[in-house]
């Protein structure tokens, strides 16, 4: 474990807690893409299959349970909670995210570390996580300026993978035979997708204005 990875995990945890806070405190999920949340639930379930078969550390197991638990709780909240579900605007959350699932699964069938059930699903979860933010970014573009908590959520979510890239560079430099090309390339793509968001986020922060994404 290195500081970059720990910072990445904590930033990821903060992003999920910010989202839970927003939904719980405002009893509203306006501005949040349910499709992105569903993609993240699939990412965590597909990636943490080894939860009960491969014990790495208490930290690793606890964080996996937290990520799976929170992502499923958010999807449950947005779909079934009697108050929150009414604030979900499905007319603006129209990204065809099932194509993302299919595309990532097909890619995982061809590009993986080993052709086993667990490794193919692991690669699938890595690819899917790289593009899971797309429905949310599209929704942000559509709904113009959104509330701060949603913007913070996307910001922390983007920052976490950027920390992981530093983690992979660090591990590549310090560990022999460390080659996580699948995760590193997908992580670069994932962070690149946030690039324009980060740019407009920084501009709005500098001008102390609300975030305005160009339509």
């Amino acid at each position: 474990m290195n500081i970059f990875r720990f910072a990445g995990d904590m930033t990821h945890l903060i992003s999920i807690l910010v989202l839970l806070l927003k939904i719980y405190a405002t009893k509203s999920c306006s501005g949040i893409s349910l499709k992105t949340q569903e993609l993240y639930a699939i990412v965590f379930v597909a990636r943490y299959l080894d939860l009960f078969t491969d014990f790495i550390s208490v930290y690793n197991t606890v964080m996996k349970l937290v990520f799976i638990g929170c992502s499923l709780a958010i999807v449950w909240c947005m779909r079934l909670h009697r108050v929150v579900r009414r604030t979900y605007n499905k007319d603006v959350d129209t990204f065809r995210h099932y194509f993302l699932v299919l595309g990532c699964f097909l890619l995982a069938l061809f590009v993986h570390e080993k052709f086993t059930f667990q490794e193919v699903l692991w690669a699938f979860s890595i690819y899917l996580e790289a593009v899971a933010i797309l429905p949310q970014l599209v929704l942000l573009q559509r709904s113009g300026n959104v509330d701060n908590l949603t913007v913070q959520y996307v910001f922390f979510l983007g920052a976490y993978r950027a920390f992981y890239i530093l983690n992979w560079i660090y591990r590549y430099l310090t560990e022999p035979h460390f080659g996580r090309w699948i995760a590193s390339v997908a992580g670069l793509v994932q962070t690149a997708l946030y690039a324009d968001f980060f740019y407009y986020y920084f501009i709005s922060w500098k001008n102390n204005a609300k975030l305005q994404l160009p339509a």
């Binding site: 990875r5 995990d9 990821h12 990636r47 080894d50 491969d54 790495i56 690793n60 964080m63 996996k64 990520f67 570390e113 080993k114 490794e119 692991w122 992981y164 983690n167 035979h177 460390f178 080659g179 996580r180 995760a183």
Partner: peptide, 10 residues
């Protein structure tokens, strides 16, 4: 062959 590295990251 290099053993498949365990996925020790989240």
């Amino acid at each position: 062959a290099r053993p498949i590295a365990r996925h020790d990251e989240l």
